[in-house]
Design a protein around this nucleic acid. Structure first.
Lengths: 127, 127
DNA sequence: CGATTGATGTCATATTTTCTAACATTTGTT
DNA sequence: AACAAATGTTAGAAAATATGACATCAATCG
């Protein structure tokens, strides 16, 4: 199913379309990019171009924010996912020892602990 | 599978993207529309917006033209498909009599006869 | 409370994209 | 040669997007 992955990651949507599909403003979408939550491509004319995967991620971001997770938290989640994916790959070559697992679990808990801090005000989306 | 149909018919692509995906020029895409081969939607600002189904159809058109079928022929094919689809629907209510079938077959043959006429010069796509 | 900060709104200006319409070109067909 | 089909090209106007600055608003902290 490589075909489908490719299609979903094809950057073909301009920001105007993304606004409608996600119900986000251009300002929000560009801000999330500035915060490294998404990395849209650019066309020859420097216009941002988004893929279906980007749409999914933006919808996720929207939901996390609505739940009260701040942007730093969302970023942490994605970084965690990325390293988890990497670990999975590496695991195909050298399976983990129990000792490794213990250390990883500990890291996870530490990360979780740091997350809930709603220090930077939860703000509800206006209607 | 209504979900997928909906997604595929969502008009979200601007003409610039369509150009890249189909390897057609804006001129060609607009011309096929003028010839009624496609009916893209328009956004609030009067920009043409295309769906994935539109992309498929444009690729088909591109292939038919490369094969030597002229636009009138392609249009005839689509009209035939449309009436076939309609017939199928109607058939769910009143199945056809043998007499109906005979008449339909005759129509088909007449249409086929008229089609091959490559009267309006076959033109090969430039590299 | 007053200051600070995170997330978003708004505005101005520049650049890119698309639209329409007209005229030009190319290549078969008659 | 004349014509028609398909496409190219160009000009001018309108829409969409980029960037950067300043404004706002709510939550948090000293």
């Amino acid at each position: 199913m490589k075909e489908k992955e490719l299609r979903r990651s094809l950057a073909v949507l301009p920001i105007g379309t993304v606004m409608k599909l996600t119900d986000l403003t251009a300002r929000q979408i560009r801000y999330y990019e500035a915060q490294q939550l998404i990395q849209p491509e650019r066309n020859e004319g420097n216009r941002r171009m988004y893929s279906l995967n980007d749409i999914d991620r933006l919808l996720e971001i929207r939901d996390y924010l609505a739940e009260g997770v701040n942007i730093a938290g969302i970023k942490a989640i994605y970084e965690q996912q990325a390293s988890a994916a990497q670990a999975k790959e590496e695991n195909l070559e050298h399976p983990l020892t129990d000792d490794d697992v213990r250390r990883i679990m500990q890291d996870e808990f530490l990360r979780q602990g740091r997350l809930g801090q709603t220090r930077p005000g939860i703000q509800q989306r206006p209607l």
